[in-house]
């Protein structure tokens, strides 16, 4: 294969006066911003939904179940298109025009990615809570805790520790899934990747760089949460390794 390797092109100036490596850095910034904002939305909403699905209240369970069913069974790119193209046509006209012309695109992207990931986190939070012995709730109630207090002081602290490895996966996934938001106009890393290929045709160099960039983002998230996992570990719970 007679490929013309040229790593220097990253330092060439592009049409807009920036250099190509600056395009990569700007893409990296948007990817990080979209991912972290979506993760915050997903953790918050996912936890609320996960808790709702374990309460004794039927209609709360039904809402939570329906949410997870809908958002987990529709592909992410379709959900983003729904928020971006369809929702503005369904709301009152003035609001639709505002959504189309004034609302920053990152809001649409964060809503789309956050709500999608929330469904997955809700599923994990629910299984974490359900993994606890039922006696923990009963003990809490017997001590005079309200239902909410049994969650706050007894069940959630344990449940989060149990599902932290699964949440770590989700947090890593969100960086990778954020690549899809290029489809709703976010100038993130994958967008810049496509743009740089079109402009320079140096496919292999930019593919290598972008691969490493995504790997690094996901890996840093992984190490960060592994650290959190270690710091919050309760001796004797789950595995005995932390019990020293």
């Amino acid at each position: 294969m007679n490929y013309h390797w040229d790593w220097q092109f990253f330092f060439q100036e592009a049409d807009d006066g920036l250099k190509y490596y600056e395009w990569v850095i700007s893409g990296l910034g948007w990817t990080t911003a979209v991912s972290l904002a979506s993760l915050a939305v997903a953790l918050l909403l996912g936890s609320v939904l996960g808790v709702m699905r374990t309460t004794p209240t039927r209609w709360l369970v039904a809402i939570g179940d329906a949410y997870v069913d809908v958002f987990r069974n529709v592909p992410l790119i379709i959900q983003l298109f729904l928020w971006f193209f369809v929702v503005p046509e369904l709301v009152p006209e003035k609001m639709g025009i505002w959504m189309k012309q004034d609302l920053p695109y990152i809001v649409t992207a964060v809503v789309g990615l956050g709500l999608y990931t929330a469904a997955r986190i809700a599923e994990q939070v629910k299984s974490g809570i359900n993994a606890l012995p039922r006696g923990q709730r009963f003990a809490g109630l017997a001590l005079g805790f309200t239902e909410w207090q049994t969650y706050r002081y007894v069940r959630l602290p344990m449940a989060y520790r149990i599902v932290l490895p699964a949440l770590t996966s989700e947090a890593m996934n969100i960086f990778k899934n954020s690549a899809v938001t290029y489809a709703v106009g976010i100038l993130e890393l994958y967008f810049q990747y496509k743009q740089i290929i079109e402009k320079t045709s140096q496919v292999l160099e930019i593919t290598i760089v972008v691969t490493l960039a995504y790997f690094t983002l996901a890996f840093v998230m992984n190490r960060l949460l592994a650290f959190v996992e270690k710091r919050t570990r309760v001796p004797g719970l789950i595995s005995g390794t932390g019990g020293k």
Partner: peptide
């Protein structure tokens, strides 16, 4: 548009007939 240049270089295709802009940057490849 993403794979046409690598496929040309590795010999998968012998000529490409599409809507490819003839640019100085691409002539490097």
């Amino acid at each position: 548009s993403q794979n046409r240049i690598p496929l040309m270089q590795n010999g998968t295709i012998d000529l490409e007939c599409g809507s490819t802009t003839n640019s100085v940057a691409r002539q490097q490849q």
